[in-house]
């Protein structure tokens, strides 16, 4: 029994009939072809699938498409206008906050959430805030530096 859903994804309206069990991450990747959102675990631990649902971070592997009917979704592809970088993306670039890049979309969107909740986080708050996003390459240190720089930029200058 398919469920009709109507969503806005990166500003574009999308109507589909979906299998009730279709996870949001599979809807984004397989139905819409937005493959920036990744899957890296089965158990909601890794955060690679993080997207914004009505501006708030969610793990799209732990969310049915049907549950977010009517919502506005932002994926990594829609965080900044094409050809431009969001200050968070720019900061990850400047501070070498990524290596293989697989966790990066989720990490960037988790950073977006962290800074939404706390625009001026301490190092400890950054590390705690990113506990739900796993990275196997960086040891997190340059991710922390990236978040610090993003916070500075987004607050319009030095703290």
């Amino acid at each position: 029994m398919a469920v009709p859903v109507s969503l806005t994804v990166n500003g574009q309206s999308q109507q589909r009939d979906v299998d009730p069990r279709l996870l949001l991450v599979h809807f984004l990747r397989d139905v819409l072809g937005l493959t920036g959102t990744k899957v890296a675990c089965d158990t909601s631990q890794c955060g690679a699938c993080t997207v914004l649902v009505d501006g708030i971070a969610a793990k799209s592997c732990t969310c049915l498409t049907a549950q977010v009917d009517g919502a506005s979704i932002t994926t990594i592809e829609g965080l900044a206008a094409p050809g431009t970088l969001h200050p968070i993306q720019e900061a990850f670039w400047n501070k070498h906050g990524l290596q293989c890049g697989f966790c990066t979309p989720g990490m960037v969107l988790a950073t977006h959430e962290l800074l939404r909740q706390n625009p001026n986080p301490t190092v400890e708050q950054i590390r705690h805030g990113l506990e739900g996003n796993l990275c196997r390459c960086t040891g997190y240190q340059n991710i922390v530096r990236s978040v610090q720089e993003a916070a500075k930029t987004m607050n319009g200058g030095a703290r």
Binding site: L34, T35, T37, I76, E77, F92, W93, N94, H96, G101
Partner: peptide, 21 residues
């Protein structure tokens, strides 16, 4: 210097095997 790889990876445009159809 900053990595040349990063802009595509940061914007979700890096293509990993499972991203291909």
């Amino acid at each position: 210097i900053r990595r040349r790889e990063d802009p595509r990876l940061l914007t979700g445009l890096g293509t990993y095997t499972d991203d291909l159809s």
